Simulated scan of single mutants.
Amino acid sequence: MKKVLKIAVGVILASTTLAGAGTLDKIAEAGKIVVGVKNDYRPWGYLDAEGNPVGLEIDLARDIAERLGVEAELVPVVASNRMEFLQQGRIDLIIATLGDNPQRRTVVGMVEPNYYAAGANVLAPKANGLKEWPDLEGKDLCAIQGSYYLREISQKYKANIVAFAGVPEATAALTNGSCVGLVYDNTWVESQLMTEAVWADYEMPFATEQLQPWAIAVPLAELDEAYGQKISEIITDWHKTGYLIEANAAHGIADSPFLQEQHEKFR
């Protein structure tokens, strides 16, 4: 009986040790961190002419990997699958324009401080003459599946949401006239209007609503453990040193009041 008890205790201790090792040790042992990123959200995450992932969030993923002393393996994700990939263990980290809200905090570990912020707005042809959000009532509005602001826009402004899996499908529908506009993050809309000639006849007609901070996410069980704490330290340092402000400017993104506020807070 004593021998059986010793074996049982040994198994329990071994299991506890393995569970306690956590993601940070797994990353170190593998020599890489697997990060879910966007590849259709220029200039935060997209593919260059050679098909290589580039962008602000790609830089952040690689900086985290460098600080951890490992390589960065980048896995493309979209709004509808990024949290599922993290839950399934297919990725170790999400850096993919993930809005932080209470509902999502029950699913994945939203690391604080937040690293960016954005709200909802619309990219629409100037010829459509949209002026205010209520102008969307009864109209088809293209969107991206999984975007946090869709329910409120549908309920508050009575728009008919036509959701697509990714940006390419949604923008194709917009340009072929299938919808009156594309609702998406104001940061993305602004960057498109500033950098892409294809949108010369388009505009962002509304005031931005539902401003929401973005979070880097770890597995929920790891949020308060060594892994979550390490990611938090890195983000804090980004704000403290102004790294995020510099990276934002390097990618031609409009100045972010949120980043400036966080820099002042942490420096």
Score class of each variant (00 low, 15 high):
154 S>L: 01
189 V>M: 01
221 A>P: 01
2 K>F: 10
237 D>R: 04
233 E>F: 10
124 A>L: 02
100 D>S: 04
138 G>T: 06
52 N>K: 15
243 Y>K: 04
67 R>G: 11
134 P>V: 01
180 V>G: 13
209 E>S: 09
239 H>Q: 02
248 N>G: 05
163 A>D: 05
228 G>Y: 08
149 Y>N: 01
127 A>M: 09
111 V>W: 13
206 F>P: 00
261 E>S: 14
222 E>R: 12
31 G>H: 10
121 N>V: 02
193 L>I: 09
5 L>H: 12
11 V>T: 13
33 I>F: 13
32 K>R: 15
208 T>A: 11
197 A>Y: 10
240 K>Q: 04
3 K>E: 13
134 P>L: 03
153 I>M: 03
66 E>H: 04
114 N>F: 02
244 L>A: 02
29 E>L: 11
46 Y>P: 15
215 A>L: 08
88 Q>S: 15
58 I>K: 11
42 R>M: 12
41 Y>S: 08
174 L>D: 00
55 G>H: 14
248 N>H: 11
166 G>V: 12
67 R>I: 04
24 L>F: 05
174 L>A: 06
98 L>K: 06
125 P>Y: 01
203 E>F: 09
200 A>E: 15
175 T>L: 09
201 D>R: 14
48 D>G: 10
54 V>Q: 14
260 Q>S: 07
219 P>Y: 06
26 K>F: 03
227 Y>E: 13
140 D>P: 15
240 K>C: 06
131 K>T: 15
106 T>L: 02
246 E>Q: 07
189 V>G: 03
164 F>L: 00
40 D>E: 01
197 A>R: 14
21 A>K: 11
176 N>E: 12
173 A>V: 00
132 E>I: 10
54 V>W: 05
103 Q>F: 10
173 A>C: 03
42 R>D: 05
202 Y>S: 01
112 E>K: 07
246 E>G: 01
243 Y>C: 07
34 V>T: 13
149 Y>Q: 03
213 P>L: 00
9 V>F: 12
119 G>H: 13
219 P>D: 06
147 S>K: 12
206 F>S: 00
190 E>I: 10
7 I>A: 15
259 L>S: 11
29 E>F: 14
48 D>Q: 13
34 V>Q: 10
97 T>A: 09
81 N>S: 06
190 E>G: 13
217 A>G: 08
117 A>P: 12
57 E>M: 14
133 W>E: 05
17 T>F: 01
34 V>W: 01
176 N>K: 04
26 K>Y: 00
89 G>W: 10
56 L>A: 05
11 V>L: 14
196 E>F: 11
8 A>Q: 07
53 P>G: 08
223 L>D: 01
177 G>M: 07
191 S>M: 05
116 Y>W: 09
181 G>D: 06
235 I>G: 00
74 L>M: 14
241 T>K: 07
10 G>I: 09
175 T>D: 03
98 L>A: 04
250 A>H: 07
64 I>R: 05
167 V>E: 13
15 S>K: 07
79 A>N: 10
21 A>G: 11
29 E>D: 13
153 I>H: 01
143 A>L: 11
54 V>P: 04
45 G>H: 05
152 E>C: 06
68 L>W: 07
263 H>C: 12
82 R>V: 13
7 I>S: 15
248 N>F: 11
143 A>V: 04
